[in-house]
Design a protein around this nucleic acid. Structure first.
Lengths: 197, 197
DNA sequence: GTCTATAGCCAGATAGAC
DNA sequence: GTCTATCTGGCTATAGAC
């Protein structure tokens, strides 16, 4: 593993746990078992290091989502594929959702400044498709954007709020993971059942 | 409005937008149109000011939730009441959910250190009740904790991730509020339909 | 490329006048 | 109680040896 990779991995861990303003360059250096000066040698400054981490995180998620949203599948198939592949992915990167949500809340201009359009999940095609399938009588007359909110809520929230929810419903890390495995299939069934004609 | 109240309101705005580590005492002072030294005169230091804000935020939400969870209502009624009253409340305090989730993620020990047990939402009674109603055949055989996750996901997520979701599905603040008004009733119906026998 | 040492700045906190 | 001015510590960033 190169030094740059060691720094990158360490930075991901620290940024995802503490956020941009809570992260300390020293903590990242310690995590990478490397000197603090190397961070600046490799990534110039904190903002650029953060940018690299954030874009990498977002760049892993967005294309997956767009691939599913823009495929030739039916809406029902898209819902099934989305919940399954999203949960499979974030179960391996559990801090990713909260990290992205948090930084977009805390510093929208900063984050937007380096978010490219092609890297943004774009549900426009899926929304038209939902309207079409409603017109065709396949789907009940619901608001497409509410449906999108439902899908994201059910899949993303448990990860985004996992510390709070683990505390509230009293579950361990392994129980949490089991529950998420179960959700891979149940969420889609539930949502599809509630909208199919 | 007393000076202390002015500080408190300003601090709430800044902390909820930037989080503990992103917030600056100077920014809070500016927001309160007051001198920075007054913050320390009134609240001693940043941590104590934050603690006051966080406990107030949490203290407004938790009792409401517990009242509903521990009432004599049926599970279906509790779901209806919860979604309605939660959304009504956070629509007026839209940064609250993300604030609480974020700080619990970034600094669990710090937050836990001043969270009292009585102020924590406790779904234990509701969980037993769900199990009972499943045994009685009122509710389908589902996992009670999954049901709780569903309820919280559907109600809380749109607020917690509102900056991201507003950007993604392209809606304005007022459209967002309209959608949340709609969700007050639709979420409960949807969830109840998916679990009733 | 990797380190030590340090510069420079910024934010939290305080002293002290009024 | 409210302000101005200032101290102090910590954090980002750099200079410079090896």
């Amino acid at each position: 593993m190169t030094t740059e990779e060691k720094i990158f991995n360490a930075a991901r861990i620290v940024f995802q746990r503490k956020g941009f303003s809570g992260a300390r360059m020293q903590e990242i250096a310690d995590e990478a078992a490397i000197n603090k000066a190397m961070l600046h040698y490799c990534f110039k400054n904190k903002e650029l290091l953060f940018k690299a981490i954030f874009m990498n995180a977002f760049g892993q998620l967005a294309p997956q989502i767009n691939d599913i949203f823009n495929s030739q599948d039916s809406v029902f198939d898209k819902i099934t594929k989305f919940t399954h592949s999203y949960i499979s992915f974030v179960i391996l990167n559990p801090y990713l959702p909260q990290f992205i949500i948090q930084e977009m809340n805390n510093n929208p201009e900063f984050v937007m400044s380096f978010m490219k359009n092609e890297n943004r999940p774009n549900p426009a095609i899926l929304i038209s498709q939902i309207e079409r399938e409603i017109a065709e009588g396949i789907i009940k007359p619901i608001h497409p954007k509410q449906l999108l909110l439902d899908i994201f809520s059910m899949t993303v929230f448990p990860f985004a709020a996992q510390v709070m929810m683990k505390g509230m419903i009293q579950i361990s890390d392994s129980e949490f993971n089991e529950m998420m495995e179960e959700r891979k299939t149940t969420i889609a069934e539930q949502i599809i059942n509630s909208i199919k004609n």
